[in-house]
Design a binder for these strands. Structure first.
Lengths: 363, 363
DNA sequence: CTGAAAGCGCTTACAG
DNA sequence: CTGAAAGCGCTTACAG
């Protein structure tokens, strides 16, 4: 706008008295360039404020320096889930360093999601990150159909397609050929933290412990619920006090209402995320229950609020930023042709706070 | 991967027995194409599963079909602020329809932010959206330097550069020329909602009302604080009960602690966002205060939790999704060459819930 | 209504 | 160590 038009590699080459190829090579370092000419080139580029056009590079190299991420959740849940922004921030930190960008899409329906991936495959991104694995997830198959490199964030080995869970992340096997690799996975197990949470409550003296799950179409929600049930059984306790939530505050409130009306009342509730737990905690309090004396509660996500409620909400730190960074790194490695079949990251860890205590004998 | 290589426009042209130009024109509609050939072309394209390469179009048309958004906040605050995800979802809904993508960046420092914009200008995006206006914001100047079309979301006319607030969004004037237009602004005023909130509290009988602000480098935080003070003065009340928060739960808690220790204690607190209000509410309750009898509280954002706490948290709906959609639409119009100097959107509106009530005489 | 050709701004074999 | 040329896959004047 201010200065006429943007400089091109041709302008730089002319000013430095070299060919366009040499300018290109001086920057990419894909072939040696004498120190003298390199200097002249860099100076010329600086004078002209030149930087290579990404569009031109994209066409010439058939790589976009962009990776794609689609969030397929209701705006309501997205806005409430601290995982996404932290995960994205983690991705960004490694992508930025690699000079890559992140193309983000938010969709409501599965149809829209498929459409987006098709557009992505149209030379828009070099690869994608797959979050929120669902049972029977079709995205892995779609990615293969589109030839779109992808990395999957999975909450359990089963979700990673490592054993048969009806999930389609197994490589194609054809007769005499070697089995092709299923695409790369970052594994952040959810189960251990839930077990720890249950143990903590049991040790504190709780026997009637309930669980408010997330939407069970998500493998991570199922995984948390299964872990809850397994842990209860291990302790010889009744694992059937499970109600289905959907990660929203509304469901946290209504499911808690339901649980508090049971006879006998549970003395502790394990929620599948913080938002539901906070709504539940607030409700219990408004009912006059003392926290944690009459009701202990735990969340999942370790949202900013958890630590600063009074009492603090015991929760599970998912280290979403680290997970995001690792996932991005894994995708970059994949794009670079390095085979990374599976990367384990430290699982989420429990953070105990005031919302957990021994059950009182009052009730 | 599965099928050899992606089809190109050449393949489609050959199969349809026409020139590449005709294929291009059949899709763009920039010139009439006979119905018969159009049919043949579409069929050929379908057979070959062809869609135009975005990289090639980007180079040929010098437009990337991508807009950029950079979030420059600490991961902590981002993860807690429901505005961003909703705003982004709103943008997406109009961008997707227009076949455009959203390139998202998250940065920590101002340096990184500048670097990102420079990369953006390198043929990565067609324009950008500017959020979180700060006093003395340098981005408008930077955008002009880079020749990057932009639209600014402003919480007040002053922040939009509509009057002198030390903000650099005025057009260049040179001698005899017409004053060039400052770049487009979407205006969503914050002040009216805060005034409404104060009025509501005053009508309920409150006299000692406090405010916990956001970080004052943000114009929207300053705007909310100023509106609070102005409203208090209008009602003939002492406007000096203002403490500085930073939008985090931690600050919500500590500032509330401070306010509750004052003598006399405020009977109501207006927080600059929901997270601080929720932390404050929780603290007040743990101190044994009855809500709203002994303390009324209000938030800002209308986060998912607000409606489902017990009592519900009175808040301000920012309609972030609509604002996002409008902002995106404004940017698209700008890119299309339509001049849209300023677009007003419905300001945020108050939602009264149980956290507001008449002050009791108990204390 | 349609085609042949040039051009967008890079990168990369191919020669030297 | 360097240059001339072809190519990436589109779009868009220019002719007809």
């Amino acid at each position: 706008m201010s200065s006429s038009r943007r400089a091109t590699i041709g302008d730089v080459a002319r000013r430095a008295g070299v060919s366009k190829a040499t300018v290109s090579l001086a920057y990419s370092g894909k072939r040696p360039v004498s120190e003298a000419t390199r200097q002249r080139i860099f100076e010329a580029a600086e004078d002209l404020e030149w930087t290579a056009s990404e569009s031109a590079r994209a066409l010439a190299m058939s790589r976009t320096a962009t990776i794609g991420l689609v969030l397929a959740r209701s705006p309501e849940v997205i806005s409430t889930d601290p995982f996404f922004p932290r995960f994205i921030a983690g991705c960004e930190s490694v992508l930025a360093e690699a000079g890559m960008g992140l193309l983000l899409s938010v969709v409501a329906t599965e149809e829209d999601e498929t459409a987006i991936y098709r557009r992505y495959a149209t030379g828009r991104v070099d690869g994608v990150i797959l979050l929120d694995v669902q049972t029977g997830d079709r995205r892995p198959a779609l990615m293969r159909e589109l030839g779109l490199p992808a990395v999957l964030l999975a909450p359990s080995p089963a979700a990673a397609g490592l054993d048969d869970a009806g999930f389609d992340n197994v490589g194609d096997k054809s007769e005499d050929e070697v089995e092709t690799t299923a695409f790369p996975v970052v594994l952040a197990e959810n189960a251990p933290a839930i077990r720890d949470l249950v143990s903590l409550l049991v040790e504190a003296g709780h026997r009637r412990i309930a669980h408010v799950s997330g939407p069970l179409r998500y493998v991570h929600a199922t995984e948390r619920r299964n872990a809850f049930e397994a842990a209860m059984l291990e302790h010889g306790l009744d694992p059937s006090l499970v109600v289905d939530g959907d990660f929203t505050a509304a469901s946290g409130r209504s499911r808690t209402l339901e649980l508090l009306d049971r006879e006998p009342r549970p003395t502790a509730i394990v929620y599948a995320n913080d938002v539901m737990a906070i709504a539940g905690l607030s409700l219990a309090r408004s009912r006059g229950l003392l926290i944690p004396e009459q009701l202990s509660l735990t969340g999942f996500d370790d949202s900013d609020l958890a630590a600063h409620l009074s009492p603090g909400l015991s929760s599970v730190s998912t280290r979403a930023d680290e997970v995001g960074a690792t996932t991005a790194r894994t995708l970059l490695a994949t794009l670079a042709g390095v085979a990374v079949p599976i990367t384990r990251v430290d699982g989420p860890t429990v953070i105990a706070r005031g919302s957990i205590g021994p059950p009182s004998d009052l009730d």
